[in-house]
């Protein structure tokens, strides 16, 4: 059971809440309180828009424990429009073909459950093809 870890990460996982550096204005995700670009202290919260594009991707058929129910699925490196690159599942693809540069948007989804049906349900960000016109 890893309840404390999931609780600690909820803000960044549910809503892509990261940080902005007060010194060099870089946007930081995941939040780490120290700016990776200028080394200054960076604790100011920043909510990312959730929009980005596929930087790279791969199809997962052999999946880690806990993810069997949704296999096969597509993992992507998504470059957020504010700069950082995050690793996440793509979802709601239907028959849509994935390609590098494809515009995507963040949605909050079920990632997996802890301890099968008895544990907590872990929610977090995934990305889907952009629906907004």
């Amino acid at each position: 059971m890893e309840v404390p870890r999931h609780w600690r990460l909820k803000k960044q996982r549910y809503a892509l809440v990261g940080e902005v550096c007060p010194h060099c204005s870089s946007k930081i995700f995941p939040p780490r309180d120290v700016c990776p670009y200028c080394g200054g202290e960076a604790k100011t919260q920043f909510s990312f828009s959730g929009r980005g594009q596929v930087y790279s991707f791969t199809q997962m058929t052999n999946v880690p424990t806990g993810y069997e129910q949704s296999a096969p699925y597509t993992m992507a490196l998504v470059q957020l429009e504010e700069g950082p690159v995050v690793t996440a599942q793509l979802t709601d693809l239907g028959e849509q073909h994935v390609e590098i540069g494809m515009p995507v948007e963040m949605v909050t989804r079920k990632i997996r459950t802890d301890m099968d049906d008895r544990g907590i349900i872990i929610y977090g960000y995934k990305f889907r093809p952009v629906m907004q016109a």
């Binding site: 129910q69 949704s70 599942q89 979802t91 079920k110 990632i111 929610y123």
Partner: peptide
Amino acid sequence: PGFDEDTIT
């Protein structure tokens, strides 16, 4: 609903 959807999402 998809695999990863429920009333909360």
